[in-house]
Amino acid sequence: MKNLRLSMKGRRAVSGYLFIMPFIIGFVVFMAAPLIMSLQMSFSEVIVSKNGFIFNSYFGLSDGQTLGGIYAAGGFSAVFKAIPDLLGLDNYVHALTVDPTFNQLLIEEITKIATHTIAILVVAFVIALLLNQEFKGRAFVRAIFFLPVILSSGVLVNLETDNTLMQGMQELISEQTPFTVTDSMMEILRLTGLGGDLLDIVFELIAEVYDIVMGAGIQIVVFLSGLQNVPASLYEAADVEGCTKWEAFWMITFPMVSPLLIVNIIYTIIDFFTKMGGDLTDLLDEKLLNFRYDHMSAMSWIYFLVTLAMIGICALIISKVVATDE
């Protein structure tokens, strides 16, 4: 009988599995299975018919039996037909070369993410620095900067982006006023020949300052918590040694907070990618409405892989640059 009893280590392992059991069940049933199914769709031709879905699989299977077997067990009534003479990557090729808009939207999205992430991080860091100083009404200002986390979620984002009345009003205002301050500033800077492309990017960012601040709520709080965890004695010691504030910033503040950069970058990218209501998600929704599940799956897989690649690259670069004490 004694042999049946588990060791301490074994019992801990069993308890651990019991604790994470909800996640395992959920992951297998509601994440892994749909994920495989969507991958399957992206490699097939999906035809919606009265009897359900027909998957014309591009895999070189004899009669689609193997794949059909998975779904019969997974509770999915679909008819599989194998088309051996077609390539499995057909939907991907279609997404990248045939579809007129996907390519363009994807590239737009990527550049937008790159500029936005950098802008959000810089803005969040500067705001966190300001909010870490002592001044009257600090609690109130902090509360306002966190408000976007509530205001820019779910259905509210979509409503804000297609606020046509606001756009109409903006156009009206710009028609009535012959020139605005920003426009004339832009003109002057362009005429003097300063900058060029770089300046255009800066102007674009200024125009989108609202989006940037609205997307920076969590990041500000994360940076702020990092700033508050820097021991004050470090600054005192630096001050005694004759360190200027500027030097103290680069020698103490920045290295101490930089580990949080990685968290914030990853959070920003994920937040951007998973947020509904971009042009790309509109395209995906349109595919969904036209029952092109195969095209949609292929596109969203490309999208997903691009996200992963971007996060990976960022994490790699940052972990090389940033000082970590671990």
Partner: peptide, 30 residues
Amino acid sequence: WFFAVILTVVIPPQTISTALHLTFSHFNPL
């Protein structure tokens, strides 16, 4: 399993939305 947790955060919901819908409308896990 922890990687799986991170995966659930990273995957854009659109990627699995159709398949998830089918999972529920034809529910028969394993």
